[in-house]
């Protein structure tokens, strides 16, 4: 088999040239492979961080939109419930987004996420419940209940951030 291949190439190129090419490609593979793998891993770590931060920003944007409607007294029937439902749905994305441990680089995630994953999952569950409660309250008839549900949802962010997100003094945004 090998012989056959060699035979075919030998017919196309002189032996020394072929040998050099084989050598070069072997060296190239050996030398480049780990670097490429490292680069790929770094890119994916950065990608992991980027994605989970964008997910958080989406959560924040929905929260901001709810505030934007209520504090400015805009009339947008159904909108608060819709945003709250989006936030409840996003809860399903948080766990997978943080599954891979990445603590290096431009991130505010604390290592405690991975050393106390059960508590992190509990914080996700509390947040999901608070979001669902708001979605329900916003479909109901009691504005006071909406107000309390908004505050409880806001506090559920803190329920996770207090333990798992670096304080602003240490944030990558302030470095």
């Amino acid at each position: 088999m090998t012989r056959f291949v060699f035979a075919r190439f030998e017919s196309l190129a002189p032996a020394p040239v072929f040998a050099a090419a084989v050598f070069a490609s072997a060296v190239g593979t050996l030398w480049l492979a780990p670097r490429e793998a490292a680069a790929q891993a770094a890119a994916s770590e950065q990608g992991v961080v980027e994605y989970r931060q964008l997910l958080m920003s989406a959560v924040g944007s929905n929260m901001g939109a709810i505030g934007g409607i209520l504090k400015n007294q805009l009339v947008r029937p159904g909108a608060v419930a819709n945003h709250a439902q989006q936030m409840a749905d996003a809860a399903k994305l948080i766990g997978p987004a943080f599954e891979q441990k990445v603590t290096a680089g431009k991130t505010d995630a604390k290592a405690e996420i991975w050393s106390d994953w059960a508590k992190f999952e509990q914080a996700i569950a509390d947040y999901e419940k608070a979001a669902t409660n708001l979605a329900t309250a916003a479909k109901g008839s009691d504005p006071a209940a909406v107000g309390l549900a908004v505050r409880a949802l806001g506090e559920s962010c803190g329920g996770c951030h207090d333990s798992f997100r670096k304080p602003k003094e240490e944030s990558y945004k302030n470095r």
Binding site: N62, I66, G67, G154, E155
Partner: peptide, 16 residues
Amino acid sequence: WYLETGLKPDGDDTQG
């Protein structure tokens, strides 16, 4: 709104 809920205009919460 911030002084009631601790939620900033961009929707982020308040710590500490």
